Simulated scan of single mutants.
Amino acid sequence: MNMPERRNVLTPEALAMVDVIARTGSFAAAARELGKVPSALTYSVRQLEEALDVLLFDRRSRQARLTAAGEELLQEGRRLLQEMDAVANRVRRVASGWETQLCIAVDAILSNLTVFELCEAFYALNPPHGPGTRLRLRSEVLAGTWEALVSGVADLAIGVSPVQTLPPGISMQPLGELDMVFVVAPHHPLAGAGEPLSDAELVHHRAVAAADSAQRLAPLTVNLLPGQDVFTVPSVGAKLEAILRGLGCGFLPESLVRGHVEVGRLVIKPVTRPRLTGRLSYAWRSAPSHAVPRGRAPLGLALSWWLEQLERPATRTALLERHIGWQPGVIG
Score class of each variant (00 low, 15 high):
residue 292 V to W: 01
residue 253 P to S: 03
residue 100 T to R: 02
residue 147 E to S: 02
residue 195 E to R: 14
residue 165 T to C: 04
residue 276 L to R: 12
residue 1 M to K: 06
residue 274 P to G: 07
residue 326 W to G: 02
residue 178 L to I: 13
residue 164 Q to M: 12
residue 249 C to P: 11
residue 292 V to P: 00
residue 245 R to L: 11
residue 212 D to E: 09
residue 223 N to E: 14
residue 184 V to T: 15
residue 185 A to F: 15
residue 164 Q to F: 02
residue 278 G to F: 08
residue 170 I to L: 01
residue 309 Q to P: 05
residue 16 A to H: 14
residue 252 L to F: 01
residue 26 S to D: 10
residue 116 F to W: 14
residue 216 R to G: 01
residue 311 E to Q: 13
residue 39 S to G: 10
residue 11 T to N: 01
residue 308 E to L: 07
residue 198 S to H: 15
residue 51 A to V: 07
residue 258 R to Q: 13
residue 130 G to V: 06
residue 111 S to Y: 00
residue 17 M to W: 14
residue 16 A to P: 02
residue 118 L to K: 07
residue 102 L to M: 05
residue 63 Q to Y: 15
residue 6 R to D: 09
residue 325 G to T: 09
residue 256 L to V: 11
residue 193 A to P: 10
residue 157 A to Y: 10
residue 68 A to R: 14
residue 295 G to F: 15
residue 179 D to W: 03
residue 114 T to W: 04
residue 84 M to A: 10
residue 105 A to M: 04
residue 80 L to R: 12
residue 10 L to H: 00
residue 274 P to S: 06
residue 267 V to K: 10
residue 237 G to V: 04
residue 31 A to E: 05
residue 242 A to G: 03
residue 311 E to H: 12
residue 296 R to P: 00
residue 118 L to Q: 11
residue 98 W to S: 06
residue 140 E to K: 10
residue 207 A to V: 15
residue 100 T to K: 02
residue 259 G to Y: 08
residue 245 R to S: 00
residue 31 A to H: 05
residue 215 Q to G: 15
residue 305 W to I: 10
residue 220 L to G: 12
residue 274 P to E: 06
residue 253 P to N: 09
residue 148 A to E: 09
residue 315 T to Q: 03
residue 125 L to S: 00
residue 31 A to Q: 09
residue 258 R to V: 07
residue 48 L to C: 13
residue 54 V to L: 13
residue 140 E to V: 08
residue 113 L to N: 03
residue 219 P to F: 07
residue 324 I to C: 10
residue 151 S to P: 06
residue 266 L to H: 03
residue 19 D to T: 14
residue 18 V to M: 01
residue 45 V to W: 06
residue 279 R to W: 00
residue 207 A to C: 15
residue 147 E to Q: 10
residue 41 L to G: 12
residue 239 K to A: 08
residue 156 L to N: 01
residue 251 F to A: 09
residue 43 Y to E: 06
residue 78 R to V: 11
residue 62 R to P: 07
residue 7 R to C: 11
residue 203 V to R: 15
residue 13 E to S: 11
residue 42 T to E: 07
residue 328 P to H: 10
residue 323 H to I: 01
residue 33 E to S: 13
residue 191 A to Q: 12
residue 223 N to H: 14
residue 214 A to D: 12
residue 138 R to L: 13
residue 271 V to R: 09
residue 168 P to K: 09
residue 226 P to Q: 02
residue 64 A to R: 08
residue 10 L to Q: 06
residue 66 L to E: 11
residue 329 G to Q: 01
residue 108 A to G: 14
residue 286 S to M: 07
residue 233 V to C: 04
residue 80 L to W: 05
residue 137 L to G: 08
residue 129 H to G: 11
residue 31 A to K: 11
residue 2 N to D: 11
residue 221 T to F: 08
residue 252 L to Q: 05
residue 162 P to D: 03
residue 49 E to F: 15
residue 70 G to Y: 13
residue 24 T to K: 00
residue 7 R to W: 11
residue 31 A to T: 13
residue 221 T to G: 05
residue 154 A to Q: 00
residue 198 S to Q: 14
residue 270 P to K: 09
residue 108 A to W: 05
residue 310 L to S: 09
residue 306 W to P: 06
residue 119 C to T: 08
residue 277 T to P: 05
residue 111 S to P: 04
residue 247 L to I: 03
